[in-house]
Design a protein around this nucleic acid. Sequence first.
DNA 1: TGTACATCAGTGAACGCGCGTTCACTGATGTAC
DNA 2: TGTACATCAGTGAACGCGCGTTCACTGATGTAC
Lengths: 230, 230
Amino acid sequence: VTTPTGTTQPSRQASSPIARVRNRRGQGGKLGEEIVTTATAILASSGTPDAVTLRAVARHIGIATTSIYSHFADREAILKAVADRAFTSLTAASLDAGAGLEDPVARLLAGCRAYVDYAVDHPHLYALMFTAGSPGGGPPGSATGGDVELHAGEDPSAAGFNGLARAVAACSAAGVSASTDPFADAVAVWMGLHGYATLRGSMTFPWPDQDLTLKHLVYSLARIREAAQV
Amino acid sequence: VTTPTGTTQPSRQASSPIARVRNRRGQGGKLGEEIVTTATAILASSGTPDAVTLRAVARHIGIATTSIYSHFADREAILKAVADRAFTSLTAASLDAGAGLEDPVARLLAGCRAYVDYAVDHPHLYALMFTAGSPGGGPPGSATGGDVELHAGEDPSAAGFNGLARAVAACSAAGVSASTDPFADAVAVWMGLHGYATLRGSMTFPWPDQDLTLKHLVYSLARIREAAQV
DNA sequence: TGTACATCAGTGAACGCGCGTTCACTGATGTAC
DNA sequence: TGTACATCAGTGAACGCGCGTTCACTGATGTAC
């Protein structure tokens, strides 16, 4: 970039020509948040984690590349932070969607629909979450005999799965699901949703009606009785 | 690499220290095949398409990097060839698995099991196939009203889906499936298989019994009547 | 049967690029005295 | 109330690396005559 006077200035992204104001003392952590947000935006617009380079992130924010090292150990740590944040959003969206509903089938379906909607709306973010090694590799934890839930502390991905497992168990308890193993059936539902979400985004195909497909997946895999289907 | 005489030689991969013999006249195409095979091996062992660089492929084969340009326009063309070949293998494995079986339910299940086995055995190859834009973006084509199959010429991915759709339709025709829309239900089965295949490989999780899960997915989504389940 | 030559299969040096990472550094700001 | 100074937030030049791609080139081989 050359100014009218002929001097050279550092290039800056077109969308934010205003010089960045340095954070006040004690507010240094804010740049860390901004790095994650920017990395997420780059991933969403480029479609590949490869585009999330230290230099690209720094360029977008308008900082020196080296400033990132105060906040993240390396490039991978940024991507991990992006995936972690996304997992939290996805889980929140899924849990919130069914929160207010009385009918267990409606609650299950609403959560599943929100899950799929999130994945379809943020395909590259969703793909990152399930890339090996991302958020600790997804929901770990162990389900002990007869228990419906995982116990993995605060892991948002485990929380998300637990919400699903509980929703299936609630249907079973209410007699509207024929499930005798809500944990196993929740896993099957999850697989169906994951397949739906990832396939729909990745290929051109004469997909059947979206909502009918979603209902077929959820009702069949959660063994919802016909009479109880919404 | 330095010889005892102190001269320098081009480095060569440890696993094939024998100098490559130049193909005979007219056999130049063989190197193209070797490039695809090597790229597939690099992908499988590294786990990421990023590792499939022109230089890495050339290094493994023991050729000059520039020799690749006689066979492929660029790096992306190599990956596309890898994905195409893998799609053909996957389709063949799925179709062959059920070929000899009389019972339509057994045939459907065998094909689905082979599909999932292939995906689990070659997770990175499978992931590449479904990366946006790979094999033309997967099975395109159009299903016209009431028809069970896609019509996309020789596309191996379309052939694979058609095999699945035909298997579901056969179950329906034999009265062992309650499906009234074999195309839509085949799509649901495909989603379930895809979710199963990709989730299982990507995360640590207390997965329920594999075969029970697979059967639940296939039977439920293809609406196989209980009495006919194998 | 011999030979000139076009073709084919592949080479090797060189290029510019964007990258991650290192290092020594700067200048504003809050705080202790 | 004033001021010295430690700390914090961020800088900027430089490095070496592996990459894709270009270009002019080589030497063996089959074929036309």
